[in-house]
């Protein structure tokens, strides 16, 4: 079980990351870099919440793999299974 200090440290890091992402969203750099930075910040925040707030880092490896890989692989499989059909439908009328 994490200490109270860990929770409030995580809270501080989440706020800093959020602020950084808001600033990055309006930065004068290429759109590709902005999107890459925002996605990296988003994944970092999600990892912090899962690990420290939801205590996933204190669970057995079996549960961690089931939760993380379950979500990531199923979401990717669904997306790549459905996206080609979406593209095909978009081009049906052309």
């Amino acid at each position: 079980m994490a200490s109270y200090k860990t929770y409030w440290y995580t809270w501080g890091v989440l706020l800093v990351l959020t602020l950084g992402m808001i600033l990055a969203g309006g930065a004068a750099i290429s759109k590709v870099w902005i999107v890459a930075l925002l996605l990296a910040g988003m994944l970092a925040k999600a990892t912090l919440i899962l690990a420290n707030f939801m205590h996933l880092r204190f669970e057995r490896v079996g549960l961690i793999l089931t939760v993380v890989m379950g979500i990531v692989f199923t979401a990717l499989a669904l997306f790549f299974g459905i996206a080609p059909d979406g593209v095909r439908i978009l081009h049906l009328g052309q």
Partner: peptide, 17 residues
């Protein structure tokens, strides 16, 4: 709104602790 939700998550984590 984001600040409020993140803060509420921190208070919930403290409750669990």
């Amino acid at each position: 709104m984001t600040f409020i939700l993140i803060s509420s998550s921190a208070t919930m984590a403290t409750a669990v602790g």
